[in-house]
């Protein structure tokens, strides 16, 4: 019966979601959303003094050496200089967590250190502190290539691809139908980007604030009139992981600026 159920689920998914018929973007044709920014927005991202996300990075730097939790330890006490210890870390997240036997994203990894090493409350998703620490750690990988090559994550990447290519929402579109099949075209006033997560957390001009990759994905899902996955849900992390795998080799831009 279990087998039968699994088969039914597979068939139902295939029939309901339908194959969207999308093909991967050839590796050498991939481009970051940065490439399509206007000159002013590019300049804003490029120059730390004009990048509005720099405030968040500075915030994160301060938090890095602040004691927290009942253990009374700062991140810096265990990790030292982030410029050395955190270099390249954000470029390979989400990463495999042996404890969870699956991928965790950078925000979840930071919160693991909060709860297990600092004995502090986890930080809320999209809180100023969590965005700041994520931006600060992300900044240490700026200019480095995104790496996703951990064989233990293959099945999670596949799960992420399924989420990316299934039709969802009242509008019944898949992420791939816009970002693989129709990038470069105009969706009314917005240019459809390839959807690479190269700059997160980003300062989004529409938000007038720093925001995470998961927040950005929620925006697309709400546009599709779909119910967004919860922050930190396995589906959210699998999508993030698939996006990072899809962007492997592209350069980390954190903190990015986007329209």
């Amino acid at each position: 019966m279990k087998r039968f159920h699994a088969l039914m689920c597979a068939v139902v998914l295939a029939a309901v979601a339908g194959p969207a018929g999308s093909a991967d973007i050839p590796l050498d044709q991939r481009r970051s959303g940065y490439a399509d920014l206007g000159r002013d927005t590019k300049a804003m991202q490029d120059d730390d003094t004009s990048n509005p996300a720099s405030l968040g990075v500075q915030d994160g730097e301060a938090l890095w050496s602040q004691k927290a939790g009942t253990a009374g330890k700062a991140c810096a006490e265990c990790h030292g200089d982030a410029a050395a210890s955190m270099k390249g870390v954000a470029a390979r997240y989400p990463a495999f967590s042996p404890a969870r036997k699956g991928p965790i994203d950078l925000e979840q990894r930071i919160n693991l250190c909060r709860t297990e090493n600092q004995k502090a409350e986890p930080l809320a998703f999209e809180s100023r502190e969590l965005l700041a620490l994520t931006a600060y750690i992300g900044r240490q990988s700026r200019g480095m290539p995104i790496v996703q090559s951990d064989a233990r994550l293959t099945s999670a990447i596949d799960a992420g691809r399924k989420l990316f290519t299934q039709r969802i929402g009242q509008i019944s579109l898949s992420c791939a139908q816009c970002h693989d099949d129709n990038w470069g075209k105009q969706l009314a006033s917005s240019l459809v980007p390839q959807g690479h997560p190269t700059g997160y957390p980003i300062y989004r001009l529409e938000w007038q604030s720093l925001g995470s990759l998961q927040r950005r994905l929620r925006n697309c899902m709400i546009g599709m009139r779909a119910e967004p996955y919860a922050y930190g849900a396995p589906e959210s992390v699998e999508l993030e992981l698939y996006l990072m795998w899809r962007a492997r080799g592209l350069t980390v831009e954190t903190p990015g600026v986007r329209p």
Partner: peptide, 12 residues
């Protein structure tokens, strides 16, 4: 069409 849709937001 309302059948066969997936993960539709509650309002819709």
């Amino acid at each position: 069409m309302i059948d066969g849709l997936n993960l539709v937001a509650p309002a819709f």
